[in-house]
Simulated scan of single mutants.
Amino acid sequence: MDTRPPVVVLPPASDNGRRVTIHGEHVGTAYSLFDVLDFLHAADLPVEDRAVDDPELIEWRGGGPYDWNDTA
């Protein structure tokens, strides 16, 4: 039985985007936490504010939900 979270957000790339996979499939690149929430919504996954901190839902790699390499 696979106990990994269904959503994986990869570390920020040089363009500050973070690739997002859901159930092992690339669904897009997020440039903010709002983008991640949009991907969750499109996949019919929970989108409540606390969902981003749920380790059973999202595995954040290379930083958490507030790490985007913003240089501005």
Rank of each mutant, 00 (worst) to 15 (best):
P65F: 11
P65C: 14
L10C: 01
H23F: 04
H41G: 15
W68M: 09
A13T: 03
T71A: 07
P6Q: 04
S14F: 08
A42H: 11
Y31S: 04
P46I: 10
G62E: 04
N69D: 14
P5K: 02
A30P: 08
D53F: 11
T71W: 07
P11W: 00
V9A: 00
P6R: 03
G62K: 04
E56D: 09
R19W: 01
L10D: 00
L45E: 10
V8I: 02
D70Q: 13
L40E: 10
D54S: 06
R61M: 05
F39S: 15
R50A: 15
S32R: 11
P12L: 00
G17Y: 01
D53E: 15
M1L: 03
G24F: 05
Y31T: 07
D15R: 03
T3G: 11
V9Q: 00
W68G: 10
R4W: 00
G17P: 02
L37S: 12
P5H: 01
N16I: 05
D44Q: 15
V36W: 08
R61L: 06
D54R: 07
D53P: 13
G62F: 00
D44Y: 14
G17I: 02
G62P: 07
D2T: 09
L33E: 15
E59R: 09
G63M: 02
V47W: 07
H23K: 05
D49A: 15
H41I: 14
E56G: 06
A51E: 07
L45V: 09
V20A: 02
S14R: 13
E59H: 06
L45D: 09
L37H: 13
D67P: 14
R18L: 00
V52L: 07
A51S: 10
E25N: 06
T21S: 06
A13L: 02
V52S: 06
E25I: 04
L40A: 11
A72I: 14
F39T: 15
V52Q: 08
L40R: 09
M1K: 04
A51P: 06
V47F: 07
R4P: 01
D70E: 13
P46E: 13
D38N: 11
A51I: 03
T21L: 03
T29G: 10
P5S: 03
V7M: 00
F34P: 08
G24A: 05
H41D: 15
E25R: 08
Y66E: 12
R50I: 14
L40F: 06
R50F: 13
V52F: 04
D2S: 05
G64H: 03
A30G: 04
P46T: 12
H26F: 10
E59K: 08
T21N: 05
P55L: 07
D54G: 04
A72M: 12
E56C: 07
S32P: 11
R61Q: 12
R19Q: 03
T29S: 09
N69S: 14
E25L: 05
A43S: 15
R61T: 11
E56H: 10
P55M: 07
D44T: 14
E25Q: 06
D35K: 10
M1A: 03
Y31P: 07
S32T: 14
V7K: 01
R18S: 00
W68R: 12
D49K: 14
H23V: 05
D54P: 05
R61K: 13
V36R: 11
F39G: 15
V9C: 00
P11M: 01
I58M: 08
